[in-house]
């Protein structure tokens, strides 16, 4: 009779013959729905974003229309070519000849590009690595985020800090949107609500970020010795579970806010005053 002492470890050999047929996947459910929807949505949003950034017009609704609304893509407007009245004249870069949105959108775009959720979305949707669970990625070599340029994803935290600055600026923009010059002075229009919701969603997006969770308390091993960080971590963690939904909602809304301002600024629609 054998005993436990008789058991000898079996050496592991890699590269053994795998079971199942050599096909890309055995899945028969519509696994392509998520990557296809992701590609479609991101393509539409990014295409619109690029168009809006380079259009360099109709991004500000000023006193001539009795409003104070600026597109989130163009705020802060800190270059010499900004239309008169647009905020941000405190730091003017006179030599910048191109669209001010290139400067204003770079950091938020980097923040989203390196976001853990969006990484999942575009790795699945665009890079097909993998397109869905249990579906072969089809790449002959895979090194993940160990090499340039994807190793730069590790700098997500710097974009997070930068995005907080933009959140503050866009919050100021939302507060400024309560100004209705020549239309009662202070009030609320649909544009005000659009910018307030935009700022709120951006704060939620930053607050639910995985790095934010790490920064607040995730790096701590003994919560009992850091009660404030533990409390912050407990607040952020439930938000973090909703990061995907918040990421999509805030991305959609920031594009919608730009579109709304653009339509009002170009005179296609008027911005109704609510009260």
């Amino acid at each position: 009779m054998s005993t436990l002492e008789d058991v000898k470890p079996v050496p592991v050999s890699l590269g053994g013959v795998r079971g199942g047929p050599d096909v890309r996947t055995l899945r028969r459910d519509p696994w392509w729905h998520f990557p296809a929807a992701t590609v479609a949505f991101l393509t539409v949003i990014v295409t619109y974003l690029m168009w809006a950034i380079f259009q360099n017009a109709y991004y500000f609704v000023g006193a001539s229309q009795h409003r104070d609304l600026i597109s989130p893509f163009y705020s802060p407007c800190i270059v010499g070519s900004c239309v008169p009245g647009a905020h941000g004249t405190f730091l003017v870069i006179h030599w910048w000849m191109w669209s001010p949105a290139i400067l204003a959108a770079a950091v938020p775009a980097g923040f989203r590009l390196t976001c853990y959720y969006y990484r999942k979305a575009y790795y699945r949707g665009f890079w097909q690595a993998p397109p869905a669970c249990g579906v072969a990625d089809g790449h002959t070599l895979y090194t993940g985020e160990t090499r340039f340029p994807l190793v730069l994803q590790n700098f997500h935290r710097y974009f997070w800090f930068g995005a907080l600055i933009f959140n503050v600026i866009l919050t100021i923009d939302a507060i400024m949107a309560f100004r209705l010059p020549g239309d009662g002075g202070i009030g609320v229009s649909v544009g005000t609500l659009v910018l307030v919701v935009n700022a709120a969603l951006l704060w939620l997006y930053s607050g639910s970020c995985h790095f934010c969770r790490h920064f607040c308390g995730g790096s701590v091993d003994r919560f009992s010795k850091h009660p404030i960080r533990y409390r912050l971590w407990k607040i952020v963690s439930p938000l973090n579970q909703r990061h995907m939904e918040i990421a999509w909602a805030s991305l959609f809304w920031v594009a919608f806010a730009d579109l709304y301002v653009r339509l009002v600024a170009s005179g296609v629609i008027s911005d109704p005053k609510l009260f």
């Binding site: 999942k120 790795y123 699945r124 690595a129 669970c133 993940g144 160990t146 994807l150 579970q241």
Partner: peptide
Amino acid sequence: GIGYCNITKCCTEVCPELIH
């Protein structure tokens, strides 16, 4: 090799214990 993970979350999706 944690850098190889590109956080596509399939591990979470199949976990029968619902571990995040």
